[in-house]
């Protein structure tokens, strides 16, 4: 087992949405390489509380990479240096003794800071509410096996469905575009037979809401895909664009 580490943290501190933030520097000593990144912050926070300072606020819940709550920009990268994991899955063994680590919140106009490292991602929920569903009520649906779906299609839809709504794609993009997130849902439902009746209407409604929320436009840099912890592919974006333009050309009246 490797030795404990001493680290310097430069952390974004911001009281609330209305005040300006700035970096503060903290020492994190005797950090075990077996700690997760968030556990390291827990320990720092315990010290801050004991000293009478405000602890560093950050969102987290499951701490196993599935709820999408954690959202730190670490040394310039959403979810830190390792590929295809979330911040809560990052362990301190990925860092070196005496290293300085810079920790920031997601930066995007559509994600205003709530406090310190916690941001407001409700824009994502509003986009989902605009069309990310199949309009069926509870009850009165056919037997599940009456809707056979080829395994390859089901698997492809599943890949799109694994998005955890963390927002790293937006944070990674220089335009703060939400295309990867939106296209993942649009694709999941566009691939499945259940999603067909509302396919074009859905693409239009979700894109319209995305634009209304103030996310930037997509210029195909691919940064989103590279930083997505769930490896959502940018082919989803192409798929969504196709549906969106088909809708615009031929189905405008539907929306």
């Amino acid at each position: 087992m490797s030795e404990n580490m001493n680290l310097t943290l430069k952390v974004w501190r911001q009281k609330n949405a209305d005040t300006k933030g700035s970096f503060a520097t903290y020492k994190a000593d005797h950090v075990s390489p077996d700690m997760s990144f968030l556990e390291m912050l827990d320990v720092v926070n315990e010290d801050l509380i004991k000293k009478g300072d405000d602890p560093i606020h950050f969102d987290h819940d499951c701490r196993e990479g599935i709820c999408g709550a954690c959202s730190l920009h670490i040394n310039g990268r959403p979810h830190g240096p390792k590929h295809a994991i979330t911040t809560c899955q990052l362990h301190m063994r990925s860092f070196k003794n005496n290293e300085t680590i810079v920790i920031e919140p997601w930066r995007a106009e559509a994600f205003p800071v709530i406090r310190d490292l916690a941001v407001d991602r409700q824009a994502f929920d509003r986009i989902q509410a605009a069309g990310g569903f199949v309009s069926v009520n509870t009850g009165g649906v056919p037997d599940a096996n009456n809707i056979p779906i080829p395994k390859v299609i089901a698997d492809e839809a599943f890949n799109s469905a694994t998005c955890i709504g963390c927002g790293a794609c937006v944070a990674a993009c220089k335009n703060a575009s939400a295309m990867l997130f939106v296209s993942a849902k649009v694709s999941q439902l566009a691939l499945l037979p259940q999603g067909q009746p509302e396919r074009y209407r859905r693409a239009q409604a979700m894109v319209a809401q995305m634009d209304a929320e103030g996310f930037g436009s997509c210029t195909n840099t691919g940064a989103c895909e590279a930083e997505c912890p769930k490896e959502i592919s940018i082919t989803n974006i192409a798929r969504m664009n196709r549906d969106y333009f088909t809708a615009k050309l031929f189905k405008e009246e539907e929306v």
Partner: peptide, 20 residues
Amino acid sequence: IIDQCVAQGVPFAREYGGLL
């Protein structure tokens, strides 16, 4: 429950024949 979830588009695992 299973009928309801499938109707919503929940991607359960499937066999090659397309059934659950």
